[in-house]
Nucleic acid binder design. Structure first.
Lengths: 144, 144
DNA sequence: TAAAAAAAGTTGCTAAAGTCAACTATTATT
DNA sequence: AATAATAGTTGACTTTAGCAACTTTTTTTA
């Protein structure tokens, strides 16, 4: 690939991550740490066993076990052993956990709102169309 | 702002960060942790006192002091007290540090190469033009 | 201009985050 | 039936990070 293209892509990555504060330690919320937020999201989506989460997020299972225990103690998730394989615990958000996830989402929306609100409609449309195009093309050619 | 726009932007953020592994713990290299990589980059760019780094990266100065000490012990950076304010130490990369930064950059380039290489030229051009447009518009309307 | 306040960086102490290996219980393999 | 593998837990440990007290030098102020 052309060196100029690589440079341009990296430039975009830097500016975009900086503006969005994607690498920000404190993420977008005050409630939860990055990992917790991610766990809520994934459990809600149906990635709901420790083992699946471990593989998806590439984290140590010992550590994950403790984090999940803490979330359970805080009443944010439940773990139930079903009728099937009695080694696995199926995780699910409690009502409190659902509420927390929604609050998280509201904050994330708010953050986007703050960052993009100043952009006039015509230009915002361009940005969004560009995003769709990038997303589609990149996805189309990405592995598996 | 329109709810649909927010959704679309967040969708892009998720897919883009996932594909690029921007939030990946191990970043793009094996040599250094995220913070170290960032420090090299910034020192090289001229953000070369602990105090400046602390403000830019929003990290604790005690912790930073130790990290810098370690980098110095590893022969990657030097700190020199100049003729001016004798409280400040000016940081600079050693030859070894420069080499490490370059290696880091090569790896980052390689990663981009891997991720985008499958995209045919015509579509890659679209992606890059879109990136430029997004970058320019977002920058134009971002605070300060 | 001497005393007080502030700034740059270091160090001790602590907590949180993360890793690794050994362990229990259950299920799958031979 | 015995052995190996899998899901999750626990103990011991390292790394990462944060806070406050401290030293040295510079700036402010009375």
């Amino acid at each position: 690939m052309d060196v100029e293209n690589i440079k341009e892509i990296r430039k975009f990555n830097r500016s975009y991550t900086r503006i969005l504060k994607l690498t920000d330690k404190y993420h977008l919320n005050t409630h939860f740490a990055l990992l917790e937020s991610r766990l809520f999201l994934e459990i809600d989506r149906g990635v709901n066993t420790a083992n699946q989460l471990m593989e998806l997020l590439q984290i140590d299972k010992g550590y994950l076990s403790r984090v999940l225990k803490r979330l359970k103690n805080d009443g944010l998730i439940d773990d139930i052993r079903g009728d099937g394989d009695r080694r696995v615990k199926t995780l699910q958000l409690t009502v409190k956990g659902e509420a927390a996830l929604e609050e998280d989402n509201r904050r994330a929306d708010q953050q986007i709102e703050n960052l993009f609100a100043r952009i006039p409609e015509t230009e915002l449309k361009k940005v969004i169309d560009d995003m769709k195009e990038i997303k589609d093309i990149v996805k189309k050619y990405s592995k598996e």
